[in-house]
């Protein structure tokens, strides 16, 4: 390198210090929630036990008793897993067709799909309640899986499309020469080649499904209620249950936060539809 700029004192000590402070500040609320989850409900609101307290696991051990945590967690897992799977089953063929057999309308269709995301959910709240109640689907796993798939389908198709576009067309066309059927092409050529992109899409869709808090709250009562509904139902503990509420909250977000750490890069590509690399 031609020039070696003398590192200023700021870039040597100041920058890392400020960066660490900012990082810790942003993480602090999560840290605080986890810390509070190890306090008894009584200790959690006592200033003298703010930092020094006798840690206890009782909030975690009593999660079933206090909140019926596992029933809601089971619903969250079932709906998020099946919704992710269904989104991929519908999304992969669609993105495949768009990437390798585009028509003039493909771009418009993609833009239209994105625009369905901008439709405010609240605008169709009553019709959805009405339709699902009259079809007997209200508060069922099937309904929540379907709705979660539909709201994530546009983003999934966009993501898959951007990944598929990067695969050289020749490889797919070589398969066509050899007389492989379209379904065979998807199964034997496309999916193995785009495995990383598909996994990233699945991960992101799963996170969105897990965190969704409009339809899962409004279209369920008990049977299909997810963790969002559980937390929303305990919104105002008035200081009585800070300990146990922190524990159940930490248990609700813990798995997803850890999962999120592993897919930061894919998140950027996915959420910006490949426009930022």
């Amino acid at each position: 390198m031609a020039i070696v700029a003398k590192p200023s004192r700021f870039s040597k000590y100041g920058r890392p210090t400020v960066a660490w402070v900012v990082g810790l500040l942003f993480f602090f609320p999560i840290f605080w929630m986890v810390l509070t989850s190890f306090k008894t409900d009584a200790d959690a609101v006592k200033p003298e036990h703010l930092i020094w307290f006798t840690p206890t696991l009782e909030n975690y051990l009593n999660m079933t008793e206090n909140y019926d945590y596992w029933r809601f967690a089971k619903n969250s897992v079932i709906t998020a897993v099946f919704a992710t799977a269904f989104t991929l089953v519908v999304g992969i063929p669609c993105a495949y067709a768009m990437a390798f057999n585009p028509s003039k309308a493909t771009k418009d269709v993609l833009m239209w799909m994105l625009s369905t995301k901008m439709l405010p959910a609240a605008a169709v709240l009553y019709p959805m309640t009405f339709l699902t109640k009259s079809a007997g689907l209200f508060d069922t796993h099937f309904l929540i899986i379907l709705v979660l798939s539909l709201i994530n389908l546009p983003i999934a198709i966009w993501m898959l499309f951007t990944y598929f576009k990067e695969i050289p067309k020749d490889i797919i066309e070589a398969g066509q020469m050899d007389g492989v059927s379209t379904m065979g092409e998807i199964k034997e050529i496309l999916i193995p080649l785009a495995w990383g992109g598909i996994a990233a899409t699945a991960l992101l869709v799963f996170i969105f499904c897990w965190n969704e808090a409009y339809w899962t709250v409004r279209l369920t009562t008990t049977d299909a209620a997810t963790l969002s509904k559980l937390i929303e139902g305990n919104r105002a503990p008035e200081g009585l249950f800070f300990g146990r509420l922190s524990a159940v909250s930490a248990a609700a977000v813990g798995p997803i936060v850890v999962l999120g750490w592993f897919c930061q890069k894919q998140l950027v590509q996915g959420l910006t539809f490949g426009a930022v690399k």
């Binding site: 942003f26 993480f27 605080w32 509070t36 709250v217 963790l227 503990p237 977000v253 999120g260 930061q264």
Partner: peptide
């Protein structure tokens, strides 16, 4: 540390901030 808040579900985010903080 910085990216973690993004993965917290909105319901937990709100309950945590309005009560505990």
């Amino acid at each position: 540390l910085l990216i973690s808040p993004f993965f917290v579900m909105p319901a937990v985010n709100a309950v945590l901030w309005i009560n505990m903080i």
